[in-house]
Design a protein around this nucleic acid. Structure first.
Length: 487
RNA sequence: GGCGCCGUACCCAAGUGGCUAAGGGAGAGGUCUGCAAAACCUCCAUUCGACGGUUCGAAUCCGCCCGGCGCCUCCA
């Protein structure tokens, strides 16, 4: 079965056919590193993490490139105003590179905590000034760009395809434009490829047109083509980057190379807080660090995957709490399977109570359909119900069957969705024999004596006191076990 | 002003022309249990913002209206 994905360029679902069989070349717009990442970034990078993980699960060799924008964009409009990184640098009285470096590491740190697998290459804009200048020169030579006073602008009217991604027409762009007309531009929709550095501008590089710095679209064209080729499979990013950023990338890249730039454009939708979009510029945002204070990584991942990547998602404490409870139910099944694998034996004439491979097929079917994680999760919950039924059925458990289920859950919930915490992925009994476990076992043994003597009041107090320190006792006919409560 | 999206049970959220409208949370009853928790079983939208229309058949297509939102400016 092929993977089908929604291509923003054609506005419909298309079968994914890689340029090179078995390989996926993907570029995702990374962050501008001038502040801590927020949960909107989390949705975006978690979505593409899931997509990349799924391609790998399906056997593709993925080359994943994500840029780090350390030049900074401009504060007010496309071509005027102050660079955000520079602004921060001035405020903090630091070198702009210190700002970029600090927040780049903050970003990497957040992503690691969210279980986002690293991209294969993280090119930085400041490390690719040469490539950007080269690309601008190609555009100048081909007549797609022009110079005015050390500034280079892209001539939108020369590129017939401008607007094909965002559905905009060049003629309509200036009507109702909120940007003041820049007299240097031939057309209001023209955009800067290179800006002359004013004397007070801190980040500056030599170029054939004097000292300056690159415009904010050119880095992605230069770096994606450098590492993935002039035509590559997938370009991803947030919906809010379609215009102007991605539209401009297409214009720059296709004008320079004369070839199609990207075959499939994927865009994730936004996170809202209290119904309105969260963004750095409005101050209406929750950082990933804040979110991680309250909720653990699997909960945040589960929450984000419980809606489709192309759907908007409203962040609220209630929704997160519901996510946590739901996820715990799924994780409990995974735990219970693990616990019972070792003691289980081989059953002669074993009749499978359900077909695990059917669940794997359904999971893949949902993921193949434009990465429909909400439906994929529904499949896992149905599987969980079947597994729990079997574990509780009182039948003797068949070890190979449990191993098949364990592997299925590891592949789907674990490898693809990244919902299984590290300690659960470890072997069933590993980490369970620590001192705390031994002590709790002693308490359980004493409590059993209390219960044998019908001293229930005291027995209940032991259970509730342990509950207060995060340990839940579970009484079963065959004895008492315990669980650590999730955060 | 232009382009576009969304409105599905108490909450979150799939489904986009045809089996009984997924799944999770919350809620109700039951099994088990000294009690509790978990798990399991059962129940929980004749209905998909409103109104028209197309169709043998629509939550799904079309029109209009109401409500919410995104992009057009840096943004994931």
């Amino acid at each position: 079965m092929p993977i089908v994905l929604y291509n923003s360029l054609t506005r419909k679902k298309e079968e994914f056919v890689p340029l090179v069989p078995g390989r996926v070349h993907i570029y995702v717009c990374g962050p501008t590193v001038y502040s801590h990442a927020h949960i909107g970034h989390a949705k975006s990078y978690l979505s593409f993490d899931m997509i990349v993980r799924y391609f790998r699960y399906r056997g593709y060799k993925v080359k994943y490139v994500q840029n780090i924008t350390d030049v900074g964009h401009l504060t007010d409009d496309a071509d005027e105003g102050e660079d955000k990184i520079l602004k921060k640098a001035r405020e903090e009285k630091l070198d702009p590179m210190e700002i970029a470096e600090y927040f780049a590491w903050s970003y990497f740190d957040d992503m690691q905590k969210l279980g986002v697998l690293r991209a294969n290459i993280f090119p930085r804009a400041t490390g690719h000034i040469v490539e950007q200048i080269d690309l601008i020169q190609r555009l100048l030579v081909k007549g797609y760009a022009y110079e005015v006073n050390g500034n280079i602008y892209y001539d939108v009217s020369r590129f017939a395809g401008y607007g094909k991604l965002s559905g905009r027409k060049v003629e309509e762009l200036d009507a109702g434009a909120r940007v003041e007309i820049n007299p240097e531009k031939r057309h209001p929709a023209d955009f800067a490829l290179w800006k002359k550095a004013e004397p007070q501008h801190l980040m500056r590089w030599n170029s054939p047109w004097g000292e300056g710095y690159p415009g904010w679209h050119i880095e992605c064209s230069a770096m994606s083509m450098k590492y993935l080729g002039e035509t590559f499979d997938i370009h991803g990013g947030g919906l809010d980057n379609i215009f102007p950023h991605h539209e401009c990338e297409i214009a720059q890249s296709e004008a320079a190379s004369g070839k199609p730039f990207v075959r499939y454009w994927l865009h994730n939708n936004m996170v809202t807080v209290n119904g309105s979009k969260m963004s750095k510029s409005t101050g209406n945002f929750i950082t990933i660090k804040d979110a991680l204070q309250q909720f653990n990584t699997p909960t945040l991942r589960y929450f984000i995957f419980s809606s489709h990547y192309r759907s908007r998602l409203d962040f609220s404490n209630e929704a997160l709490q519901a996510a946590r409870v739901g996820l715990d139910k799924l994780l409990l099944t995974i735990k219970n399977v693990k616990k019972k694998i070792d003691p289980a034996g081989q059953i002669k004439n074993f009749h499978s109570p359900f077909d695990p491979s059917g669940f794997r097929k359904q999971f893949e079917e949902m993921m193949d359909d434009d990465f429909n994680t909400p439906r994929a999760l529904a499949v896992l919950f149905e599987l969980s119900g079947e597994v729990n039924s079997y574990l509780n059925s009182g039948l003797s458990l068949h070890q190979p069957f449990l191993q098949t289920i364990d592997q299925l859950l590891r592949d789907t919930a674990g490898q693809v969705l990244g919902l299984i915490p590290e300690d659960l992925l470890a072997s069933a009994e590993a980490g369970r024999k620590g001192d705390i476990e031994k002590i709790v076992q002693v308490v359980i043994d004493i409590r059993k004596k209390l219960r044998d003597h019908k001293q229930y009041q005291l027995a209940d107090q032991v259970r509730s006191d342990l509950g207060k320190v995060g340990i839940t006792l579970v009484d079963k006919p065959e004895g008492t076990t315990f669980e650590y409560q999730s955060e």
